[in-house]
């Protein structure tokens, strides 16, 4: 059955990424270094600046969700590089000649990227505790926060696959990737509240899915203010569905 085929392919793609990760564990550690520095250095320095209104939350705690998401989404946004590489070699041609749907290929790989993000966050998480960040000790909240992290990372990986299928070459992809990553972080509430931004940035932040993810993770892990969390999840789910669809449709074109 077609549905079973797709499911199987999705799991195969997830397994592939997991096996890759297992063969190169150092990558995941080295990628954890930068976010830990953000927390330890930037967070500590900025916490002496009293002007950022964080509702009484220590600044380092305030930015922890943002930094967690930043580090994992950075990986997702450049996931497309893997796809570009697979296109330059014959891997994608062969994969697309296998009896599997492009939806399964795209979604499977985006999910795999989401799983990778969770693993990476799990490494940063204990370090944040050691740095004195106080998480809300509610396992359900923590679980929901990780689910959000997983969903948003998967979404950005799909976005990256979409960009890869349009750009096709490494150079062009890198250009777009770099251009995406800055506004993504600075036009979101990852490092400071939206209310501090000029109106123009505010409107970008409003359509930036990362804003909703940060809001949810911050509510669930740090502030305990979960009133907006359901809405955040809806926003991210809509983003995921949209981007999974668009990426899947454009995927077959990548080998033409």
């Amino acid at each position: 059955m077609a549905f079973n085929d797709s499911l199987r392919e999705m799991f195969a793609m997830i397994e592939l990424e997991m096996r890759r990760l297992r063969h190169d564990r150092t990558e995941i550690y080295t990628r954890a270094v930068q976010p830990i520095l953000w927390l330890a250095v930037y967070g500590t320095v900025m916490s002496h600046v009293r002007d950022i209104p964080t509702n009484g939350i220590p600044y380092i705690d305030y930015i922890t969700p943002g930094v967690l998401l930043q580090s994992t989404i950075f990986v997702s946004v450049f996931y497309g590089l893997t796809i570009v590489w697979e296109r330059e070699t014959g891997i994608l041609k062969r994969l697309l000649v296998a009896p599997a749907s492009r939806y399964a290929t795209v979604i499977g790989r985006a999910i795999a990227s989401g799983v990778r993000a969770v693993v990476q966050a799990l490494i940063i998480f204990p370090v944040a505790i050691l740095l004195g960040v106080k998480f809300i000790p509610n396992p359900l909240y923590i679980l929901a926060a990780f689910l959000m992290l997983f969903m948003i990372s998967g979404g950005f990986a799909a976005l990256s696959i979409f960009v890869a299928s349009l750009m096709k070459t490494r150079e062009r992809f890198m250009g777009i990737g770099q251009a995406m990553i800055m506004p993504l972080f600075f036009a979101s509430n990852a490092l400071y509240p939206i209310s501090l931004m000029p109106p123009f940035l505010q409107s970008i932040a409003f359509v930036n899915p990362l804003t909703y993810a940060v809001d949810a993770v911050r509510g669930l892990m740090i502030s305990g203010n979960v009133a907006n969390v359901p809405a955040d999840f809806v926003a991210v789910i809509v983003f995921d569905i949209l981007i999974f669809t668009v990426a899947s449709i454009s995927f077959r074109k990548i080998i033409e």
Partner: peptide
């Protein structure tokens, strides 16, 4: 099908 270009994942066995 075996394409003209290399087509296996090199970072696994």
């Amino acid at each position: 099908y075996v394409p003209q270009e290399m087509s296996v994942w090199t970072d696994i066995t």
